[in-house]
Design a protein around this nucleic acid. Sequence first.
RNA 1: CGGGGCGUGGCUCAGUUUGGUAGAGCACCUCGCUUGGGACGAGGGGGUCGCAGGUUCAAAUCCUGCCGCUCCGACCA
Length: 569
Amino acid sequence: MRVSRLYAPTLREVPAEAEVVSHQLMLRAGFMRKAAGGIYSYLPLALRVLKKIEAIVREEMDQAGAQELLMPIVQPAEMWQESGRWDVYGAEMFRLNDRHNRNFCLGPTHEEMVTTLIRADIRSYRQLPLNVYQIQNKFRDERRPRFGLMRGREFIMKDAYSFDRDEVALDKSYQAMYDAYTRIFTRCGLNFRPVEADSGAIGGSGSHEFMVIADSGEAEIVFCTECEYAANVEKAELAAISSVDEPMQELKSVDTPNCKTIADVCNYLNLSIEKSVKAVAYTSEKGLILCFVRGDHEVNEIKVINTCNVINLEMASEEELTKAGTVGGYMGPVGMDPEKVMIVVDSSVMNMHNFCCGANKSDSHYLNVNPGRDFTPTFVADIRLIQETDACPHCGGKISKARGIEVGQVFKLFTKYSEALKATYLDENGKEKPMVMGCYGVGVSRTMAAAIEQNNDADGIIWPAAIAPYQVLVVPVNVKDELSSQMAEEVYSNLLKAGIEAAIDDRKERPGVKFKDADLIGYPVRIVIGPKTLTEKQIEIKIRKTGEVMSLPLNDDYVKAIKELLLKL
RNA sequence: CGGGGCGUGGCUCAGUUUGGUAGAGCACCUCGCUUGGGACGAGGGGGUCGCAGGUUCAAAUCCUGCCGCUCCGACCA
């Protein structure tokens, strides 16, 4: 590629709309341009990176026994109605009508499509297992598109779906995908970690997310410093904390004027925060949900959703609290009717004795509250968020927190869709059974952004060589200097002949401009050709990642040397 | 959806308080000069000031409504 012809307009200044570094750099380096909120055009450089990532994904998917196909983006409403998700999916689904006013959507995912496809063609256990995948644009009308490609409304995704005869076979398919994902992200040169993930209503140990470790990541993960355990904080399971046993004391009401937070109350009553219980109120389609955790703990909303088996969970309004006979800041389980309001109590709270909590009226708390005697929960469950002071749920070791960008997820669907959409097969006894499914996603465009998030410096992007748009840039320092120009062309052409993806900056620009753009775009290797080294019959090689500069003699060996160098980047 | 901020040439922004000729830097075009880390000089092109109403002799500026972008909270590759 000749940079003089390359459509990659670089910007000197950071566009005001970009907040995170990957977004800023992709705009500045001429990789993409915005069409609307969360919707972008990929310019040639970005497309090359995407194709590199896709090629790696394809190789590993094919290797793992999956077959590529391509399903429609425009999907009829009927199959979504059949699975029940047409109404559940809500505002996030891009919907449209055809000229006959029939309902369609732009595919946010393809479980319905693939299941209705497969059910028509697969009838026998002999045709299983089957794993199909596609790479395609997905559409989700996000509440809040942000961070450039990290959360777009249109994005590129690889989605795979496995069909097996039973759960044992699903485990094998799942493991094959898990291993393929590990290879994919390793080959992309990313620092990532698979973590246990919430699998929602489907339950079981059925999901892992692949997280690229980055401070700008939207997800929070915990990992053990002593064993292999790693999980999304949403998922991390916690055993009930036991408390020191002590005799029950008499329930007592105390005045706590203007003590609306747990810190206020403990301060005012001179009480240890571990002797207090705080409440968080939510509303859902099943009504009000009051959650109780120890004062120094936090509620994990995902766990609440799973425990109560609800879909929508929102913070309750003061009005709703009044109606339920309580008041914000002074909520407590004592005297609440578990028939009218869901009372969800964290299992650690059930081990506490003589604790303090709200009395459901202003400026008033109870002391010496005891589970069993003073209130009846609707549910007792692990509903709290893991904290860094907690022990590893697996080995009891010390845990640490980090942030991550979710670039992939593997998920056991079991028979959720095959039952809803009647995708069945006949086993060897002629018995009809639902296929056991799994689904596996890679955010391709997000992976590109994540790679930048993790690999950049003040000068620009530092592409891992495996996914760089071009691997080598040849820079003639001054195109008017005939010898430099000629030698640069020769080196460029030799690199191309050797199968190296090279570009040459043949623009009539000053060297500073070319160097700045080279760093910004992030070519892994830069070769500078100018009088300074040419007089010694050498070319200068600079490694973008390390800043290391070396000279190579201008003979037949330099192409080989560069090839070897690239393998190490 | 709720809450904040912002919409002025391609990009970054000034001008809005106090209404009166639309500006700067970068980018772009021409010429000259320059060439190892975003040079310099001269000349030039490009803006319905987000949109629609209103107030006024006069609106980028004041008023009303709408739209878009962005950040903070509930969702997810």
